[in-house]
Computed example of a mutant assay.
Amino acid sequence: MNDRSDPPRHNELGQPVGVPVENWTPRPRPPQSAMEGRFSRVEPLEAARHGDDLFAAFAEDDDGRTWTYMASGPFADREAFDRWLSICQQSEDPFFQAILDLASGQALGVASYMRMVPDMGVIEVGNISLAPRLQKTAAATEAMYLMMRRAFDELGYRRYEWKCDSLNAASRKAAERLGFTFEGIFRQAVVYKGRNRDTAWYAITDQEWPTIRQALESWLDAGNFDGEGHQKQPLSAFMPKPS
């Protein structure tokens, strides 16, 4: 890994150039295997296996608020939902994952690895849709941690991205809580559901990951939860303070 504080390098013409990335090789794509922690399990989405749980869980979102900033949904009926799940399952990029709550054993959300650029070591997490029961839970946070850990520690990616509608305050807050750095707004980047989207970009780099991983693991540790499963300290207490 290269420290971003390294002094600038220069080529033989005296022009500033980036620091070398030694022994770099393209990164593998995420495998089909599951990831499991104390609260959650993340596994490749299967419509037949996860459909009943997901449809029932998302149905608890009475006004469809979960889907406001998503390209798909809300769904008129189970048939429409199953068509969407089938498309998601067959997609290679995005590569959709089901998020299971281990306490109930139920699938309560989805997320995906997407816009994968193995040659450059860049990968994005997106299509994050969490049913009301999964939102703001340790299982949801752990699922995001598991996906980060696979990208950085198992697969060796250099950059992990999070993008969302700039008006999606909840998504932006979640990115910042998880340690992503805000990098700017891409104006008029997307048209979806017949409306404009200015896209907010966030990312974590491999240099930043060890500190963020330690913060997430400290927050997820059993000692940070009381007998009723309530956190003793918020994740922000473990995250590095802005310089």
Rank of each mutant, 00 (worst) to 15 (best):
P242A: 12
E161A: 10
P132L: 01
S112I: 03
Y202T: 03
P8L: 15
Q233G: 06
R65I: 13
G37S: 00
N127M: 02
N2M: 11
Q135D: 09
A57G: 00
E124D: 05
D119G: 03
P26F: 15
A47W: 09
M1Y: 11
C88Q: 12
T211F: 14
R41P: 06
Q32P: 06
S91H: 02
R41K: 13
A98L: 01
A80M: 12
R187Y: 15
P26C: 02
S243D: 14
Q233H: 10
A139Y: 08
L235T: 14
A76M: 05
P234R: 04
A151S: 08
N127I: 00
L178Q: 01
I204N: 01
L178W: 11
R115P: 12
A71M: 08
C88T: 05
D198I: 08
I87C: 15
Q89M: 08
Y113M: 03
P94D: 00
G229A: 13
D101Y: 05
G73H: 01
D165R: 02
V125Y: 08
L134Y: 03
V17P: 15
A98W: 14
A103P: 04
Q231I: 08
P8T: 04
A111Y: 11
V17E: 09
N2A: 07
A200F: 15
G223A: 03
R158T: 01
L155P: 11
F39R: 10
T137W: 11
